[in-house]
């Protein structure tokens, strides 16, 4: 008359199983985040006609709903590549400048803060 639920069946009870599965997923995600959160943002800058732009300065802005605050600047290498370290935000904007030429402000949205990211499209320098 008095039911004794065997330990194994208690484990299959949804109220235990679902939280367990969730905990495993969260742990795995946190592990992935820990491995990929060095704050590296890399990319390339090209001239209007596609040739790599050496020596262009690239500005990294941290963006929130209204304002964007400049966080760092770097210059591109001979191959037009650039690399930022220590980005702490999950929402950044990048703009390349060389003399009077500028590129559009490209918004880069990340899945978590300081995620290592590489720009898919190069920053294209153009007139003002």
């Amino acid at each position: 008359m008095y039911q004794r639920t065997r330990p194994v069946r208690r484990l299959q009870n949804r109220f235990v199983l679902v939280p367990l599965v969730l905990a495993v997923l969260v742990a795995a995600w946190n592990l992935y985040v820990a491995l990929h959160a060095h704050g590296v943002v890399a990319g390339r800058v090209v001239e209007a006609d596609g040739r790599p732009a050496a020596g262009a300065t690239v500005i990294l802005y941290e963006r929130d709903f209204i304002t964007q605050n400049e966080r760092g600047r770097t210059t591109t290498g001979p191959d037009g590549g650039f690399r930022f370290n220590g980005n702490a935000s999950h929402l950044v904007q990048l703009q390349a400048r060389q003399g009077a030429l500028r590129s559009a402000r490209v918004t880069l949205r990340l899945w978590f803060r300081a995620q290592d990211a590489r720009l898919a499209q190069p920053l294209r320098l153009g007139p003002g």
């Binding site: 999950h90 929402l91 949205r109 990340l110 899945w111 978590f112 803060r113």
Partner: peptide, 11 residues
């Protein structure tokens, strides 16, 4: 569509 609004909410 993009899922980044959920990331914004998290932070």
């Amino acid at each position: 569509p993009h899922l980044f609004n959920y990331v914004d909410v998290w932070y």
